[in-house]
């Protein structure tokens, strides 16, 4: 097992997320205003961070690198695809955890809020990306089109990020840092939140490494099957 083996990332994330669970559920105090509901905020912003910035960001950067002739490779396309797939999962988790928090706080599961709506639209974009990949059989065409589409969807991220500033929204502003860079959260609450951010990020790295490895072996199997079929045809021709 090498130093950067996926298994390590998996174990690190298990430890960090277990620490978050213990701290978030038992050690940290209830919030003055939100009470025990605040405990959901130890995971919701961290999940959203992975969905919007880490995972989706990886997908977009890899897509850009695929389109750039000097860095174009099958690997870049694979990373972009796998990161986008993971982002779909985290976007769904973001919306679900947000809804669970929103019901007792706002009185509704869903509000027509700028951040919620723009995040949901990004989720639809990501599902569309996966559909686009399935619609194209040719590997190079699929990679090229998916990369362009991923770059086109990237415009959503600044809209989502600044939506709480641009529009009057129900959704709260920045969770950890204020616009001036001052800390919003303190003490054990701050540490729990930070560990949660690192924990979910390492979970993403583990999922990405495993998913890319799986996709690579699938591609190899596909190629081997194709070679075998071609070989059979050739032998039939000779026979």
């Amino acid at each position: 097992m090498t130093r950067w083996s996926p298994r390590w990332w998996g174990w690190i994330s298990v430890v960090l997320l277990a620490f978050t669970a213990v701290m978030g559920l038992w050690v940290t105090p209830p919030d003055q205003v939100q009470g025990d509901l605040v405990r959901l905020l130890y995971i919701h912003p961290a999940i959203a961070w992975v969905a919007l910035y880490v995972s989706f960001g990886t997908a977009v950067v890899a897509a850009g690198l695929y389109l750039w002739p000097r860095t174009r490779s099958e690997g870049m396309d694979r990373v972009s695809y796998c990161a986008m797939e993971i982002s779909v999962l985290f976007i769904a988790l973001t919306l679900v955890t947000g809804s669970i928090w929103g019901r007792p706080t706002w009185g509704v599961w869903w509000a027509w809020d700028a951040r919620l709506t723009s995040t949901a639209i990004l989720g639809v974009f990501e599902v569309a990306y996966l559909a686009l990949r399935r619609a194209n059989e040719d590997a190079e065409l699929r990679a090229r089109r998916s990369a362009v589409f991923a770059l086109l969807t990237a415009v959503n991220v600044p809209i989502i990020h600044f939506s709480v500033i641009w529009w009057k929204t129900l959704h709260q502003g920045a969770s950890v840092l204020t616009s001036t860079g001052a800390l919003n959260v303190h003490g054990s609450m701050l540490w729990t939140m930070l560990v949660s951010f690192v924990g979910f990020t390492t979970l993403f790295v583990w999922l990405l490494l495993r998913r890319v490895a799986l996709e690579s072996s699938r591609d190899e199997r596909r190629r081997a099957r194709l070679d075998a079929a071609l070989d059979l045809r050739r032998r039939e021709g000779v026979g």
């Binding site: 990004l122 639809v124 599902v127 569309a128 686009l132 619609a135 194209n136």
Partner: peptide, 27 residues
């Protein structure tokens, strides 16, 4: 025009185009 070009030649372009285009049209 861009999203239309993305769907050309693939499987199910008629159903894929709305899925790709409508989120972009939302803003």
């Amino acid at each position: 025009t861009i999203y239309g070009a993305l769907t050309t030649g693939g499987d199910g372009p008629v159903t894929l185009l709305p899925l790709l285009t409508l989120p972009a049209f939302a803003p």
